[in-house]
Computed example of a mutant assay.
Amino acid sequence: MLPRDGAALGPDGERALAGFRELLYRERAEIEAECGVPARFVDTDPGEGPRWLIGPAACNPAISTYPRRGEGQAGVWLDREREVLITDAPDLFGVIEAISLIRTLVMTGQDAVFVSECRDLDEAIERITREVGWTYPSFALRGLDWEAICARHREEVARASDPLAAMQTWLAELQDAHTWIKPSPAPVPLPYEVWVEGDTAVFTRVPQGTAAWDAGVRPGDVLLDEDTAGWWARTGSTPHAKPLMTGYRLLSTPVGVERTLAARRAGGRRGGGRGGLRNRPPHPPGVSGPPPPPGGVPRVGG
């Protein structure tokens, strides 16, 4: 059962909820493969048979008819007797994180699993090791040895001055854009596209009317003064999509933060522009976590 009352999410709620519902529609085949049964999307609780109620509860009143421990938290619940699965959180971003915990719920045999922060870096490393090992579906398909990958990276992460970047490099070996570590709240991309190969990033899309366009930047210009090689190393993706996905990660910026970009024109002249973000669209589920502040630790969701 899908959430349907977007007005409960605020001024942009209807638009955000419509986008979320469309995402679920597009992922029907994946949902059916994961659940092992055909999926039918409905707006009312049928009241019987296996069913999945998707929050936020403010947009899906049927969820409140199933009392459960930890209500109000971001999490996933399974009532085996009534054959009801619930993913809920106060907002859409939390619901997406909760959905990523369904496999963890199944693997642990619990009746509820909640999105939670790690106490320290050691716990973050253990959670990545355990939950990716449980939930990643393509080890055999891609010929990946997760134990060997972990052995190469766990100590590197523990010693790293930037554990977030080290974790991203670790998960990049999975060659999967949906499984990685990201800051929280998640950054969103600027309105440009760049194609990255190794340490070089070339603009492929610069919309008219943007700050970069007004500053003279055009497709074919080279992005300067960014950690392009670093992003190439820590971006996981299939080989054919990695140049575009690395550019997507490279240009993602926290909401509300103004960012200055510099570029070299084909003729050698240097140009630049600033880009700001005003909203935050939903991000794909996966492993997520904020950069660890001094004395802080990453938050990881499987």
Rank of each mutant, 00 (worst) to 15 (best):
L17I: 04
D145T: 10
E197R: 11
G302E: 07
R259N: 06
A18I: 02
R218W: 10
Q175T: 11
R270M: 09
E123F: 00
G268N: 11
W180K: 03
G209F: 08
A58E: 09
N60K: 05
E34F: 15
I181C: 11
V196D: 00
E226C: 14
G267I: 05
F41I: 12
G72S: 08
E71H: 13
G296D: 04
A172T: 02
Y136I: 00
G13Y: 02
S64N: 07
R264S: 08
L85M: 11
H178D: 10
A29M: 15
T260A: 14
D214E: 15
R218P: 09
P185Q: 06
A124W: 00
D45R: 01
P163T: 14
D12G: 07
P207E: 03
H283F: 15
R127W: 01
S252G: 03
Q208W: 14
A172D: 11
P219F: 13
P292R: 00
R299Y: 08
V106F: 10
P282H: 14
A215M: 08
F93S: 14
G286Q: 01
D221T: 12
T210E: 09
R80A: 09
R152Y: 11
V297M: 13
P67Y: 10
R154G: 07
T235L: 08
E258D: 13
P185M: 06
L2C: 10
P189I: 00
P281R: 01
V42A: 12
D162I: 07
A7F: 12
R218T: 14
G236W: 06
R274C: 10
G36D: 01
A160N: 04
E27I: 03
V113L: 04
L85V: 09
H240E: 14
D214Q: 15
A29T: 11
R205Q: 11
W180F: 06
R299T: 12
V113S: 01
R234V: 10
T44V: 15
P239F: 11
R28M: 05
L261R: 06
T210L: 05
L17K: 02
P239M: 12
D176W: 04
N279D: 15
T228P: 13
D5A: 12
N60D: 01
T238K: 15
G216D: 04
G301N: 14
A151Y: 04
P290K: 07
A7H: 12
G72D: 02
P284T: 08
L190S: 15
L261N: 04
E97W: 06
R278S: 08
G247V: 10
V206D: 03
S237P: 04
R218K: 13
A148E: 12
P191W: 02
L23G: 15
V188W: 02
A18D: 13
M167Y: 09
D88Q: 07
L78D: 06
I181M: 15
E131N: 00
D214C: 09
E14Y: 03
D79V: 07
E32M: 09
V287L: 14
F41Q: 10
F139N: 03
G220Y: 09
L85T: 07
A158Q: 14
D162F: 08
P38E: 07
I99N: 04
S138I: 03
A151G: 14
P187T: 00
C59F: 04
T235N: 07
L9S: 03
R154F: 10
T204F: 02
A58V: 09
V300T: 03
